[in-house]
């Protein structure tokens, strides 16, 4: 060991050169695949950080341009997406309308909503069909979800539809399950109330209320509302029945107006007088 140290001290230069030469020769005599492998590993280890850095610089220089391009693309795709969503909603709506229309055997005139007026007391739509399309006042108006209202004014090429979501727009309804009859009236926001229901009647939350057909204006069997709450009225003789219409009155874009099968000149769509009459009949009933 001492001899080695002495030799190394004395011939330090030559020893280091010898070591380097041996290392070089060792690399030279490696088999070709091993040489390639060593070179590949060494280059990977040495150049990867450099490559990352240079790539980063290259990326950074083109970042602004790419950012602008992507922003433009995002804007374009957002608009395109909105347009497609609109198409999808319209398609779904029309599909439901078509299905609804196929189910009916009465003549339904489709009409597009071209205007509306919602206030605290009444909701009126303007549709693009009128007397020229054989429409007349009091004709019932439907959506695929159920009864929506009736025509209150008819012009040659347009009409006004008063929605159920209005005061003085009661509808005679029948409970689909228990066949209990009552008068459905709008109270506030999306709350309707089924009135004139005796305390002994069978009405439960979730029951569907259909048009009763009484009066001959609206045909029997169309959905109008779903019972949401049943409580005993303060007088102890009747039930207080809250209901909700399945129709989204604020989002109506297409409606159907029923034109046939109804003797319009004789028809009565329940109004205040009819409601009073019904109530008196119910009171007199045993």
């Amino acid at each position: 060991m001492h001899i080695i140290e002495t030799v190394f001290q004395k011939h330090r230069d030559k020893t280091i050169l010898g070591a380097l030469v041996i290392a070089s020769l060792a690399l030279l005599i490696l088999p070709q695949p091993a040489k390639l492998d060593v070179a590949r590993r060494a280059l990977d280890a040495l150049l990867l950080p450099v490559e990352r850095y240079t790539n980063f610089i290259g990326d950074y220089s083109s970042l602004r341009e790419e950012n602008t391009r992507l922003k433009r693309m995002v804007m374009s795709l957002t608009l395109e997406r909105e347009r497609l969503l609109e198409f999808r909603r319209e398609r779904e709506r029309l599909r439901r309308l078509a299905a609804f229309k196929e189910e009916q055997f009465r003549t339904l005139v489709p009409a597009e909503v071209v205007g509306h007026n919602f206030d605290r007391f009444q909701s009126v739509l303007v549709v693009d069909k009128g007397a020229n399309d054989s429409l007349r006042v009091k004709m019932p108006v439907f959506t695929y979800q159920g009864l929506a209202g009736r025509l209150v004014k008819v012009f040659p090429n347009s009409s006004w539809v008063q929605l159920l979501r209005s005061t003085n727009q009661p509808v005679s309804c029948i409970n689909k399950r228990s066949r209990v009859v009552g008068i459905l009236e709008w109270r506030r926001r999306d709350v309707f109330e089924l009135t004139s229901v005796s305390a002994v009647e069978d009405v439960a939350v979730g029951d569907t209320l259909l048009t009763s057909g009484f009066g001959g204006v609206v045909p029997k069997g169309f959905p109008v509302a779903i019972v949401t709450k049943v409580t005993e009225a303060s007088d102890g003789l009747t039930l207080r029945v809250d209901a909700r219409s399945p129709v989204d009155f604020f989002a109506l874009e297409e409606v159907f107006i029923m034109t046939d099968e109804i003797p319009w000149d004789q028809g009565i769509f329940y109004d205040e007088a009819d409601t009073a009459l019904m109530r008196s009949i119910l009171r007199e009933a045993p």
Partner: peptide, 25 residues
């Protein structure tokens, strides 16, 4: 100088590994 030559030569050899070690040597 020998060390520097070895390192630089080895780096050069990595670009052409057929004669890996020749430039280093």
């Amino acid at each position: 100088g020998a060390f520097f030559g070895f390192i630089l030569g080895l780096a050069q050899d990595l670009g052409n590994p057929t004669f890996l070690g020749l430039n280093a040597l």
